[in-house]
Nucleic acid binder design. Structure first.
Lengths: 242, 242
DNA sequence: CACTTAAGTTGACGGTGTTCACAATCTGCT
DNA sequence: AGCAGATTGTGAACACCGTCAACTTAAGTG
């Protein structure tokens, strides 16, 4: 009844089924990239695959489910990229680690603008991503940022007084609650610092991506500088990254 | 031929025409607010107005032009709100001015989430806002932020050494070019600082608006704290805002 | 082989943006 | 007053969309 394979069925069937699903998603992704989320349509995907639109319903119960899959995939792709950057720069200072991860974040966003808008805004009408499916995927990416902060703290590169100083009384208990939830096992000050970093990172990237920055500004140079600046007053006291 | 009124025509005609246009935009805005940009459709607007869909084409050459009008209106509304905040807090310190304007910015975003996503992302498929029409409208809002920074500098509340220190060599000439263009008549360091503020502001708001922040965090408390932190980070040395 | 299950097609329904030919209305002019 | 012309609205049509139900075809299993 349901298109999802509850029973293993035959291995061969299952294999080709997965391949078809992957082809659908790939085609959809391509159409998504061609011109924003503009021209994405089930019928279009089916047409390009030489299928009828209704055939796709054997694989996805609705267009929104296909979209959700794309959202999850995009989050995963971003997280993968960040983790690669994290591993590659793990030996250096925490500050360098942050800058490298941030650059990877921006690079991914610029290479996959349609995916970025897909996951960080709602470019498709009538579609709201279901949190229960997308949130875990998103959190892998956020987790990398938290790991960077964790490393900074562990390496003694964060000024504890400064971290404490940045906390407003209203915010402290909330951050403690977040920390206690297990999602983000860091002291409140470090969490606050990480949020500052994330907001700046995300804000600058969306401004650049949607062409809200003056055109004479080179996004890369501005970005690099801003990432260093944000480190600085968050209480980072380690070696200056390049 | 063209729906736009090149000739003044009769004053009466012109008046009722403007009223109709306004009613169309209002209806569209309402539909937009009802559930995101999801359910916005020309036919829906026409239906609610007791008109045929094709009748709207007497007033807007296409759906995208209607959207562009909404975008411009939204930018204008935001700018109005910011200017009110600017005037109201003009007497206080630059830091207080910044926090008040930033709060107004967030308040507007939260009260008009659909408008915010409409102007700062691309929530409608196939639609890309034409820059020549939207950019001037957007710049009024950015201009307020720049005025805040101007005031901070004029009041001697910005540490000039710090501003200088924050500039990367790659970025300086670009910011100087921007400044020279007349759009943003501020020294490069101050421009950089203003961009930092804007990116943080914008980033945090989009994260909150799209529910990418952990739910136990109160957006308002986090926001206030972050706005103070960002001030600090960019070399603000005036009295601490509340 | 017969039987079950999955994959795909056909055709429809109601929705969308858009166009075009036509009718109704209002305005200005003589 | 009456006519000409512009303005505003309608109705039907076109091509597209997501979705569903009934049907046919193919594949795998006992």
């Amino acid at each position: 009844m349901t298109p999802s394979a509850a029973t293993p069925a035959s291995p061969r069937r299952e294999r080709v089924r997965r391949a078809t699903i992957e082809e659908i998603k790939e085609t959809a992704r391509r159409q998504l990239a061609i011109e924003g989320a503009a021209t994405l349509s089930l019928r279009g995907v089916a047409r390009e695959m030489g299928l009828t639109a209704s055939a796709l319903y054997r694989y996805f119960p609705s267009r929104d489910d296909l979209l959700t899959d794309l959202v999850v995939d995009a989050f995963t792709s971003l997280a993968d990229r960040l983790e690669v950057a994290l591993d590659a720069a793990w030996e250096g200072s925490g500050g360098q680690l942050w800058v490298d991860v941030a650059r990877a974040y921006r690079a991914w966003a610029i290479e996959h603008p349609s995916d970025y808008t897909l996951i960080f805004s709602t470019p498709v009408p009538g579609y709201e991503a279901p949190e229960d499916r997308t949130k875990p995927a998103m959190f892998r990416g956020v987790g990398v940022l938290l790991q960077v902060m964790t490393r900074c703290v562990a390496a003694g590169e964060m000024d504890p007084d400064r971290l404490e100083e940045l906390l407003s009384p209203a915010l402290r208990p909330q951050l403690e609650a977040w920390s206690a939830s297990g999602e983000a096992p860091l002291p409140p000050g470090a969490l606050s610092a990480a949020l500052t970093c994330w907001a700046t990172l995300h804000g600058l990237i969306t401004l650049e991506l949607f062409h809200h920055l003056p055109p004479m500004l080179d996004g890369g140079a501005l970005f690099d500088q801003q990432m260093v600046v944000v480190l600085d007053r968050i209480g980072y006291i380690g070696p200056r990254p390049t």
